[in-house]
Design a protein around this nucleic acid. Structure first.
Lengths: 228, 228
DNA sequence: GTTCTGAAGGCTGTATACAGAATACTTGAT
DNA sequence: ATCAAGTATTCTGTATACAGCCTTCAGAAC
C-alpha cells in the first residue's frame, strides 16, 4: 500500500510544464467528461483519478470543486463528486437560454462589431464549409461552436461571453453525441450561411431570427437523439 | 425501518452544524466579499483567513477555487486569490445580460407560472412595500432581489435561474452601495408595482418592457454612483 | 543618493497523513 | 437460500508538512 509512489503512464506531466497544474487538471477533466471517458453519473474516485493523472489528491480536489461550480460535476456530501447528468428538460432549458443569449449577442454584434471581426467569422465559416464538404464531422462541430462563440465575442460583453461559454461547455457532451442525417446537416449549414449574411448586412432582427430558428432546430435534433 | 440510524437529539442544531464545512466556508466568504469586509482587489491570505474562520487551509482553498469559478474571486498563479473588482463597463455588461435574462424569464413566467406562484410574488412585493414605507433599506434590497429571483424561478428553467443567480451575486456588492434618493426610490417601487400587475395579467410583452426599463434605470443609478 | 544584488521571510502549491463516514463483504441465523 | 448484523475495507474530508516562488529589506557598489 505504501510503494505506489510512481504514477504510471501519466501523459499530463509532459504537457503541464507551463500551464499551472490547476489549469492542466481542469482541462484534462473537462475533456474526460466531454468525451465521455467519464460518463454521466460516474463517481470521481479521487485516488484513482489522481494516480491516472499523476497528481496528488489536493490539487485534483481543487479542480473538482472548480468544475462543480461550473456545473459539470455534482458534489454529494461524504460521497465525493459525480459527473452531472442532464435530462431532456434540462437540455432544453439550456438551449433556450443559449438561444436568448445568442439573439442578444447578435443584436449587439450588429451594432458594435468591427468589419475585421465579421471577416474573421466569415473565415471560420468558410473553414467549416470545407469540413462539411469533406465530411469531417469532428472539426465541423468544433468550428460550429467556435463560430457561435465568436459571434458572442463580437458583442464585446464579458459577462455575456462568460455565461454563454459556461452553458455551451455543458452541452458539448450532448452535441458530441448528436449525429444528424445528411439532409439535416445540410440544413444546418444553410442556416449558418444565412447567419453570416445577416451579420455582414448588420441586420439585427434577421440575425436574431435566424439564430433563434437555428437553436430551435438544434433542440429538435437533440430531442430526437434523446428519444423524447 | 431504521429508527436507530436517526440521531435522536435536536436534529436542527446538528443539521446546521453538519452543513458541510465546504458550504459553510463558502457562505462565509461570499458574505465577507459582498459586505465589503474583503474589499475589491484585496488579497486572500490563506493562513490568515483560515485562522480567522477556524479551519485549515485545505478546505479553505477548495472554497476559494469554487468562488473563482463563480467569478467573485480571481486566481493569480503563485500569488493566490484576489477579490475581483468590476469597472463600470463590466457592471453595465452584467446588467445588460441580467436584463435580457429577466425579460426572457418574464415571458416564460407569463406562460407557465401557477396562480400560486404569482400570489407568492405579490406577497413578497407587499412585504417589500412595508419595508419601503418604514424606510428599511436593507430588507428592502433583500426583498427586491428575492422578487427578481422569484420571477426568474417562475419560468421553471433551471439553467436560467442558475445563470441569473450567478450574475446577481456579483452585483450584490455593487447594489449594496447604491443609495439613491427618495424620488428615485419611489420610482423603483412604482416600477415594481407595475411589474406585478403585468405578471398577474400575464401580459408578457408589457412585463418584458417594464423589466427592461427597470434594469435600465438600475444601471443609471449605479452609473451615477460610480461617477461614470 | 540611487540602484543593483542577495538573503530572509512569508505565502502559495503540492504531497502526505490521519480520522470518520460510507460501502462492501462475510458470517451467522432463520 | 435469504436476510441481517457486524466487521473490514475503501474513500472522502481535514489537517499538517514541506518545497519552491515571490516579495521585501538590507547592504554594497556606483
Amino acid at each position: 500500500m505504501a510503494n505506489s509512489q510512481m504514477p504510471v503512464g501519466s501523459d499530463i506531466e509532459i504537457r503541464i510544464e507551463r500551464q499551472s497544474l490547476h489549469d492542466a487538471i481542469l482541462s484534462r477533466l473537462r475533456d474526460m467528461i466531454i468525451e465521455g471517458h467519464l460518463p454521466p453519473g460516474a463517481r470521481l474516485n479521487e485516488g484513482h483519478l489522481g494516480a491516472q493523472l499523476g497528481v496528488s489528491r489536493t490539487p485534483l480536489r481543487e479542480a473538482i470543486k472548480f468544475l462543480a461550480s461550473e456545473g459539470l460535476v455534482e458534489l454529494v456530501p461524504s460521497r465525493g463528486a459525480l459527473v452531472k447528468q442532464f435530462g431532456a428538460k434540462e437540455v432544453r432549458d439550456m438551449l433556450q437560454v443559449i438561444s436568448t443569449l445568442e439573439q442578444f449577442a447578435g443584436r449587439l454584434a450588429c451594432e458594435v462589431a468591427t468589419a475585421q471581426g465579421i471577416a474573421e467569422i466569415r473565415a471560420l465559416h468558410d473553414e467549416m464549409l470545407a469540413c462539411y464538404r469533406r465530411g469531417d464531422r469532428l472539426d465541423y462541430y468544433k468550428l460550429n461552436q467556435e463560430i457561435h462563440t465568436a459571434i458572442v465575442a463580437l458583442a464585446d460583453n464579458g459577462a455575456l461571453s462568460e455565461v454563454h461559454a459556461r452553458l455551451q461547455t455543458r452541452l458539448k457532451r450532448i452535441r458530441f453525441i448528436g449525429h444528424e442525417g445528411p439532409e439535416k446537416w445540410a440544413n444546418a449549414v444553410a442556416e449558418h450561411e444565412e447567419m453570416i449574411l445577416a451579420l455582414e448586412a448588420r441586420d439585427a432582427n434577421r440575425l436574431a431570427a435566424i439564430l433563434a430558428e437555428h437553436l430551435k432546430r438544434a433542440w429538435d435534433r437533440v430531442r430526437d437523439g434523446l428519444g423524447g
